[in-house]
């Protein structure tokens, strides 16, 4: 019988500890980061002003949520001052930069001066890079923690990145059913990639040491329903199937279908991050 403690429990027993430092709120922050950035980028690509504005707002909301989780937000200045020090500080500079630039684009568009020509191309490149970074950042942060074996792998940034990107694309699809054949395959492709990466991650984690095994155990037991039912079933398999369906038979793709896909992906994104955070387990020290 493995007794698993919670980090912060007042218990001087040697044992595995489930981390409690980052929870639902932090997970949601990560969701909003990936979602906002992707939404903005895709909307920029599609020239969709409302989408861009929404992307900026969502990204801004992630910042607010982040500040709410900090113990001493007034010291944020030190984070900025150490831009290159850690993934978090990089994020703390790049995400506000994203928000600032994004807002500028939105304002310019509102003012009747949408980006065009070379500037637009340059902006797309810059925002593509920023989006990829923002979507992956939380995964990058987690993957640098040697303490938690389940996170400490190269695939976590990819999983988090893909999850954000696919959720963003799905949501955008809900209010602008852009139906070019190519586009309709992007969503399912991202989702499928995520599913595959996730599967590889879980398989490798089965042999990544005792703490990772405990994490896997938690996924299989305590979090089985939200993970397999929610994050994987509703959040990945369902949108994947519906997305493929919509791509194959574009005529059948109603707005409602897009909304179902979007909601499922959003729920999937939230649940996936939440479960992955909640199964972060510290190894026994001895």
């Amino acid at each position: 019988m493995t007794h698993i403690f919670r980090q912060g429990d007042v218990d001087f027993s040697v044992g595995y500890k489930v981390q409690t430092t980052w929870g639902f709120q932090e997970g949601l922050t990560f969701v909003l980061e990936g979602l906002g950035a992707t939404l903005f980028f895709v909307a920029l690509l599609a020239g969709h002003l409302v989408g861009m504005a929404l992307g900026v707002v969502v990204l801004g909301a992630s910042g607010v949520l982040l500040m709410m989780h900090l113990g001493r937000p007034k010291n944020m200045i030190y984070v900025m001052a150490n831009f290159r020090h850690s993934w978090m500080s990089r994020g703390a500079v790049l995400i506000p930069t994203f928000i600032g630039l994004g807002a500028l684009v939105v304002v310019a568009d509102l003012a009747g001066a949408p980006l065009t020509g070379g500037v637009r191309i340059a902006a797309l490149v810059v925002f593509l890079l920023l989006t990829l970074f923002t979507a992956m950042k939380s995964g990058l942060v987690l993957s640098t923690f040697p303490a938690i074996a389940f996170w400490n792998g190269g695939l976590l940034p990819v999983i988090f990145g893909l999850s954000g990107l696919s959720a963003g694309v799905a949501i955008f699809g809900a209010f602008d059913d852009f139906v070019t054949a190519l586009w309709s395959w992007v969503g399912p492709a991202l989702t499928a990639a995520l599913l595959v990466t996730l599967a590889i991650h879980l398989i490798t984690m089965r042999n990544a040491g005792r703490a990772a095994k405990v994490s896997m155990g938690l996924i299989g037991a305590r979090h089985a329903l939200p993970f397999y039912g929610g994050a994987v079933g509703v959040g990945l398999a369902l949108p994947l199937v519906l997305g493929i369906y919509a791509a194959i038979v574009p005529g059948e793709a109603t707005t409602w279908l897009w909304i179902v896909i979007a909601v499922a992906r959003l729920a999937g994104d939230i649940l996936l991050r939440d479960v992955l955070l909640k199964v972060g387990v510290f190894d026994k020290v001895r």
């Binding site: 010291n75 150490n82 500080s89 640098t144 923690f145």
Partner: peptide, 8 residues
């Protein structure tokens, strides 16, 4: 230490 964004 390297994960600390503030160098605190």
């Amino acid at each position: 230490v390297p994960v600390c964004p503030t160098k605190a």
